[in-house]
């Protein structure tokens, strides 16, 4: 699914328009525990989270997550935005909560990209 479609589905706003948003997202993850994301995610997913600190971006970068959606209209910290822009990771804020955001995306066919069974 194209990132632009996802932004529409979650009524999102792109926070760093400088980055490349013409990217394919293959799955979804909803988590606030970064170790969980690091432990169990597959590459090329979008992350929905309530965390807004720079660690979210670093985690995304390490786990090859392509974009981050902040739930409940949260705005990232300044440094988070700066790092994301530098690392070319789109940041999106959505009025949806994590439950609703994941629900809407799952409903349109985006699979879960978190597995409790290690993929590698």
């Amino acid at each position: 699914m194209n990132l632009k479609e996802i932004i529409e589905i979650v009524d999102g706003t792109l926070l760093n328009p400088q980055v490349d948003t013409n990217i394919e997202i293959r799955g979804g993850i909803g988590a606030d525990l970064m170790s969980d994301v690091l432990a169990a995610s597959q590459p090329d997913a979008i992350l929905m989270t309530g965390l807004t600190n720079p660690q979210v971006v670093r985690t995304a970068q390490m786990a090859d997550i392509r974009a981050i959606v902040f739930v409940r209209g949260k705005q990232p910290q300044e440094q988070t935005l700066a790092i994301a822009t530098q690392e070319n990771i789109p940041l999106i804020t959505s009025p949806c909560g994590m439950f609703e955001g994941c629900g809407r995306l799952h409903e349109t066919g985006l699979p879960s990209f978190e597995s409790n069974v290690p993929s590698d």
Binding site: G30, C102, H106, E107, F113, E114
Partner: peptide, 19 residues
């Protein structure tokens, strides 16, 4: 559940548990 957040949210949402 063995499902991750994203999956269980999706299934509940589709069952009609909305906000």
């Amino acid at each position: 559940t063995p499902c991750p957040n994203f999956e269980i949210d999706g299934r509940l949402w589709e069952m009609g548990v909305k906000k």
